[in-house]
């Protein structure tokens, strides 16, 4: 009848290139690899340091955080500075909207201050889509986390880390452990892993922390961590929020660690060269044992470094797509004009 089974992808421009980054859902492999390859180019192969480049000189980026964040916001700011952009960061939960200014008025005001790109974090799922719908055509929106929906740059940096350590995401077995239900990071990770054709994606956790329809995400579900970790190449641990105990979804941190905590003994069930990831900040002794977090298989701190390169890549790819589109449109106008002139010179 009338149901639409696929939503249009509002984040691509007329040439099918990224205009906004709202979610990874609906993107093609080439969209992701372009970002990952670009990120690679920002890292000095000898020193592993991240270069400063003038790619976004003269561009104005505004970081709008409607929800508090330290790490994501800091890495975005560092990435923007490394791209030589002019930046402004606003904690909106403490300013305008508290005074009763509407969300859109805030956005339009900031847009009038000549922003080229908004990096937005918001507590409501779909907020990034909402903003992308209402910004001026030349303004780009980058989702830095919306509700429980998506956190695409975090997932991309995770893919980058996996690529660095494993060469490729293709054909790997990946287990994600913990609070899957409330995690926007996990939703984006799962999409990234399927786009890059991981062989198997497992989610491990109690039923109360899994979405009602995990099959809609294309994952295998395990309630038993020992079973779920068998022979995997990558283990991604998810942070457990305090609120989950308060809303009676799990009994206690202690019991959670007993049943789902990543210990050395459990890690041994995975492939011997398996890597351990965590989007941070970690809860030692809640979802992960210190010995594992600080152990040789952990890549948790490298993730943070790569996060800068990947966010630089996303922003530079989006801005270069915009430049390419502008050029394309100018060429089209020119050829249309040339045709018109030709017709005028050679009237039939």
């Amino acid at each position: 009848m009338t149901a639409r089974l696929t939503a249009p992808n509002p984040q691509l421009n007329e040439l099918g290139k990224l205009k906004h980054l709202l979610t990874l859902e609906g993107l093609k492999q080439h969209h992701l690899t372009e970002i990952l390859d670009t990120a690679e180019s920002f890292i000095d192969p000898n020193t592993n340091k991240i270069k400063k480049v003038p790619l976004l000189r003269g561009k104005s980026i505004m970081n709008l955080f409607f929800e508090p964040s330290t790490r994501t916001r800091t890495t975005f700011e560092i990435a923007e500075k490394r791209l030589s952009a002019d930046i402004e960061s606003l904690d909106i939960q403490t300013s305008a909207t508290k005074k009763g200014e509407s969300l859109l008025d805030t956005l339009w005001n900031l847009q009038a201050m000549q922003a080229d790109m908004f990096v937005i974090r918001h507590a409501e799922s779909g907020a990034a889509h909402f903003f992308a719908q209402h910004v001026a055509p030349h303004v780009h929106v980058l989702n830095a986390g919306d509700g429980q929906h998506a956190h695409p740059t975090q997932a991309l940096l995770d893919m980058f880390t996996i690529r660095k350590k494993k060469g490729d995401v293709f054909d790997l077995k990946v287990a994600i452990v913990g609070d899957i239900l409330h995690s926007r990071v996990v939703r984006s990770q799962i999409q990234a892993l399927s786009i890059l054709e991981a062989r198997e994606i497992r989610v491990i956790g109690p039923k109360t922390l899994l979405p009602e329809h995990p099959e809609a995400l294309g994952v295998h579900v395990y309630h038993d961590i020992e079973e779920g970790l068998k022979d995997v190449d990558v283990i991604i641990m998810v942070r457990l929020q305090n609120e989950r105990m308060k809303s009676a979804l799990i009994p206690s941190e202690k019991e959670f660690f007993k049943r789902y905590g990543l210990t050395e003994k459990r890690l041994a069930l995975a492939k011997p060269d398996a890597i351990v990831m965590h989007p941070g900040p970690i809860n030692r002794g809640v979802e992960i044992d210190s010995a594992v977090a600080d152990g040789p298989q952990s890549v948790i701190l490298e993730q943070v470094t790569y996060g800068i390169a990947v966010r630089m890549a996303v922003m530079s790819v989006i801005m270069s797509n915009a430049a390419q589109l502008a050029q394309h449109q100018a060429e089209q106008e020119q050829s249309a004009l040339a045709e018109e002139n030709a017709e005028m010179e050679n009237p039939q």
């Binding site: 859902e25 799922s125 779909g126 919306d146 509700g147 429980q148 929906h149 998506a150 926007r184 939703r187 979405p211 009602e212 329809h213 995990p214 099959e215 809609a216 995400l217």
Partner: peptide
């Protein structure tokens, strides 16, 4: 509480 909410992370 269906596949769409699971995918979109809507409460």
């Amino acid at each position: 509480d269906g596949p769409v909410a699971s995918r979109l992370g809507l409460p």
